[in-house]
């Protein structure tokens, strides 16, 4: 009796597994560069919740930031002045699955190049040398990562490698993982954690927004941001590297860095270039 009742369930599970295994291959595996040239369009995964890099401007309904400007500039370098950059919102959670599924050609979304990620993704050369730091409330006893002792709580964002880094640098602290930077910052303000950790570029954005919170202790990791593409998209990867080189050479890169980061305390072009 019980067996018979379970049978439809097993069938359903098997069917779903087959259906999901069957799809997702063809689109992600075709040559993205050739396809982009054919359609005169590159599809970029970008963040919309990250100040200075990719943030939705509620008034204009446009995503704005350094990553966005880079994506547009690189598209023009690869496809020519008429090339179109399609922007698709991703989160730390979804950026890898969307690349793997072929929903986007490339992701430029404050994404650090790591050996683990390089196993499953292609990366361009670094376009921004970030480093992980801590954001705390002004006057907090926590001055650097060394102060994250037993009993402290540090807030990170799910799916970002900053969580693993802080666990290595401060193994005694408890890490709370929230789903995006806005929530993480809100949780910090609500006292859910003693510090918020992620890349300094993002933390400076938060500090700029609320001066009661400051970045302390400098960077404790090297977090080079790269443009991520699906594994095996070597043609597109080469084109990206060339484009980044060209932007550095013709001054566009410096212009964009200045546009977004000039005047933020403790920020130097030399450190990130």
């Amino acid at each position: 009796m019980a067996k018979r009742r379970l049978r439809p369930l097993l069938l359903l599970v098997a069917f779903l597994a087959l259906a999901l295994a069957g799809c997702g291959k063809s689109v992600a595996d075709r040559d993205a560069l050739a396809h982009a040239k054919a359609t005169n369009k590159l599809v970029w995964g970008v963040k919309a919740d990250t100040r200075l890099f990719g943030l939705m401007n509620i008034k204009t309904d446009q995503i704005e930031g350094f990553d966005i400007d880079m994506a547009k500039a690189i598209t023009k370098q690869i496809l020519g002045p008429k090339g179109k950059a399609d922007l698709v919102q991703v989160t730390s959670d979804t950026r890898v699955p969307m690349l793997k599924g072929g929903n986007v050609d490339a992701v430029i979304a404050t994404m650090t190049i790591t050996p683990d990620r390089q196993k499953v993704l292609n990366f361009s050369q670094p376009y921004f040398n970030a480093g992980q730091a801590l954001l705390v409330k002004k006057g907090s006893p926590i001055k650097s990562v060394k102060d994250l002792v037993k009993g402290t709580k540090v807030i990170g964002v799910q799916g970002s490698n900053s969580v693993d880094n802080v666990k290595k640098a401060a193994p005694q602290t408890q890490v709370l993982q929230l789903s995006d930077y806005a929530q993480a910052f809100t949780a910090l303000k609500s006292g859910q954690g003693d510090a918020l950790t992620t890349d300094n570029g993002i933390l400076y954005g938060m500090s700029e927004q609320d001066h009661d919170y400051v970045v302390v202790g400098g960077t404790f990791t090297k977090e080079p941001y790269g443009i991520a593409m699906n594994k095996g998209q070597d043609n597109l990867t080469k084109a990206m590297n060339t484009a980044v080189d060209q932007l550095r050479a013709n001054g566009t890169y410096a212009k964009l860095i200045n546009k977004w980061f000039k005047g933020i305390p403790g920020f130097s072009l030399k450190e990130v270039e």
Binding site: L20, S92, D93, V96, P97, K100, R117, V120, Q158, G159, S160, V163, D164, Q177, S179
Partner: peptide, 14 residues
């Protein structure tokens, strides 16, 4: 919560 962390660590979301 743990599922999200594992998915992000392993990249095998499905």
């Amino acid at each position: 919560y743990e599922g999200k962390i594992v998915a992000n660590a392993t990249f095998s979301t499905f």
